[in-house]
Amino acid sequence: MTRRPPAVLLLPALLALAFLLLPLLALLLRAPWTELPDLLSTPVVGQALRLSLVTAGLATVLCVLLGVPLAWLLARANLPGRGLLRALVTVPLVLPPVVGGVALLLLLGRDGVLGRPLEALTGLTIPFTPAAVVLANAFVALPFLVLAVEGALRGADRRYEDVAATLGAGRWHVFRTVTVPLVAPGIAAGAVLSFARALGEFGATITFAGSFPGRTQTMPIAVYLALETDPDAAIALSLVLLLVSVAVLAVLRDRWTGVRV
């Protein structure tokens, strides 16, 4: 299997690799390394990083709790119009995130379809809170998890589940003790993808949750604002986001999943 790949494939492949990696290399080259400690020790950076990690983490939890059952429904249940349902689930994947943010505002905003009765009943408003960041993150990240888990469920051998059912296990019992362990790598991969997507979320977040340091200003928004006045600070922040993303992927790949993500 050591045949030389044909140049017609090798050349574009190398171009693609360069295209993906060179911008990141430029980021590393241009990083203001000597000023980095000063730039990164400002409270804004710590706040934004903490907020990003916490909200992306919570969004991932939300995605797993809601997304795994939905994926199961799409892969296993006998639903009419399943194809349409699956297509609808993927809409946030192709929707510009800003549009997602506007849609969330129209549903859950103070004047929104659900937001207005919510405020009238409980006095709670969602926009401009960390909860809004979590919701915006989950909205854009959930399709990644659903698709990953659904793929794993379709690829899994159903005979294990059938055998468990024949042996008298109820459907919930089968789901818990057979299905979930069977597709655990798929769930983990989906969770990692969701987390990564949530961590980089910008458009839906700034539209739905706004931007306030320590409350709703996540790392990507901090990068954007820093770019307005202080490009060096923006590079430093980008660098942190890059390192965190790579670290998350590396750690999760090695320790938890055993799958290549």
Partner: peptide, 20 residues
């Protein structure tokens, strides 16, 4: 006591228009 610090003036205007 702002609730949000937007990235441009039109985003502020939009939030007022939407009643947020």
């Amino acid at each position: 006591s702002p609730d949000t610090l937007e990235q441009d003036v039109r985003a502020v205007l939009t939030k007022v228009r939407l009643g947020e």
